[in-house]
Design a protein around this nucleic acid. Structure first.
Length: 197
DNA sequence: TAGGCCATCTGGTCCT
DNA sequence: AGGACCAGATGGCCTA
């Protein structure tokens, strides 16, 4: 269990035991900025029993939604941790950030795919020197929103690394020795991760 | 102390 | 109607 989550736990409604400051917290949020005058108006008006019930129902709904959202994010983080666990570990031992994890995983998959592709080439044509394709993005315009990893492993694009890998040291231009794949993918990630936009 | 990262809250939108 | 998903805002913690 990630220590980050150890104190939050599943019954996370108790994570904020002080529900009395709910209103003050809400007023801090700029997402729902409400002038103090309007709030006072509401308070004076909303004194009927029915309105109070509505407020309670709304509040309960909000708390439930918060709880679900918390759990959802915890699930997301669990998946991210699982992904970190699959990725190669490094002596550095500093935990990858979320964005680093995603980017590294992406590049790692690409590197593994390239390794397989080259191995296939070698198996098919013995004696033929396998070469990496030129990294995509070289000489081609970067499409808008290309940081959203549109790389696919199918067909002709199977050897295309993500466009944002173009400037990465992990996608050099057709080197003679392709053993860098394993090395960079496994051990060079700190310099491998950044600069992949 | 500024900046990065993170957890959480919140309201809106979409989906079932 | 209620839940899932999303993005913006906020505050706390940590590090250079």
């Amino acid at each position: 269990m990630d220590p980050v989550f150890s104190d939050i736990d599943s019954n996370s409604c108790d994570f904020f035991p002080h529900s009395d400051d709910e209103d003050s917290r809400g007023s801090l949020r700029s997402a729902s900025p409400e002038p103090e005058q309007q709030q006072q108006k509401k308070r004076r008006r909303g004194r009927g029993r029915g309105e109070a019930t509505v407020q309670v129902v709304k509040k309960n709904r909000r708390l439930k939604a918060n709880d679900r959202e918390r759990n959802r994010m915890h699930n997301l983080n669990d998946a991210l941790d699982a992904l970190r666990g699959v990725l190669p570990a490094f002596p550095d031992e500093t935990k990858l950030t979320k964005i680093e994890t995603l980017r590294f995983a992406h590049n790692y998959i690409w590197a593994l795919s390239e390794t397989i592709r080259i191995a296939d080439l070698q198996a098919g044509k013995t004696g033929d020197v396998p070469r990496l394709l030129s990294p995509p993005g070289l000489g081609e315009a970067k499409s808008p929103g290309s940081d959203a990893c549109s790389w696919s492993s199918s067909g002709s694009s199977s050897s295309s690394s993500p466009a944002y890998c173009a400037s990465s040291p992990g996608s050099p231009a057709a080197p003679e020795d392709y053993s860098y794949l394993q090395q960079d993918a496994l051990f060079g990630f700190r310099s491998f991760v950044p600069g992949i936009y």
